[in-house]
Design a protein around this nucleic acid. Structure first.
Lengths: 109, 109
DNA sequence: TTTGTATGTCGTAAACATACGAATTAGCGA
DNA sequence: TCGCTAATTCGTATGTTTACGACATACAAA
């Protein structure tokens, strides 16, 4: 985070942070895969994406650090799944933004 | 955009692009200001944010290039306002993502 | 114990984002 | 015209993200 980012309200910072998580197609793809339960094994996820294992792992860690997904070792594999609570909270934040009342009166554009 | 980003589906790319727009608190703040019509003059927007005029202008251009806001010269000032059509389309894209059915069956996490 | 497979971390290169002072453009009024 | 003000663009410094090969770890089965 740039220093200046800290000068905005915590609400704005949190929403911006959530948006950043969704700002890469690989991370959205991972979320969709986990929601659909098509696969939750790390290697399978990597195989579904046009990126190297190392890069996919990096995106997985990012989502995990943000608490949006959970990982669990299962023998030689690692199962990931969506943290449904967190997902709902992110959803609620965006809904707050999108439910803004838009005042078009006096708009000259 | 990194080269690899192009290898994801257009839908994912578009949504990721929209999320990137919302990934900085200044840009969310600008959208909120414009929605509330508290101010739509460039300089006033800059005064509301803890950033220099040059930086705010840069964020405004980013939103404008993405089509999310429109700008119009009015004498010595420039009036900005939300592009409501585009805003609704972004909203619809996010709603699509958040309306994903989540399958928790077989989840071992 | 050795071998193989699945994951994750490290180091690093390249691209991109953020931030701002200085310079530039452009309208308005004296 | 001349100077004033508002807005944007330019140049540049700094920090962050993306991407991946190579290395490390850890379990499982031969």
């Amino acid at each position: 985070m740039h220093a200046k980012t800290a000068e905005f309200s915590p609400e704005l910072q949190e929403l911006a942070q959530a948006a950043k998580l969704l700002s890469h197609p690989a991370r959205i793809a991972i979320i969709k895969l986990l929601a659909a339960k098509k696969s939750c094994i790390s290697g399978d996820i990597a195989n579904e994406l046009p990126l190297s294992r190392a890069t996919v792992c990096q995106h997985l860690q990012e989502l995990k650090n943000a608490g949006l997904i959970k990982g669990e070792i299962s023998g030689l594999n690692v199962n990931y799944c969506l943290n449904v609570e967190k997902w709902r909270s992110v959803k609620a934040q965006f809904e707050g933004l999108f439910s803004l009342t838009i005042h078009e009166i006096n708009c000259n554009c």
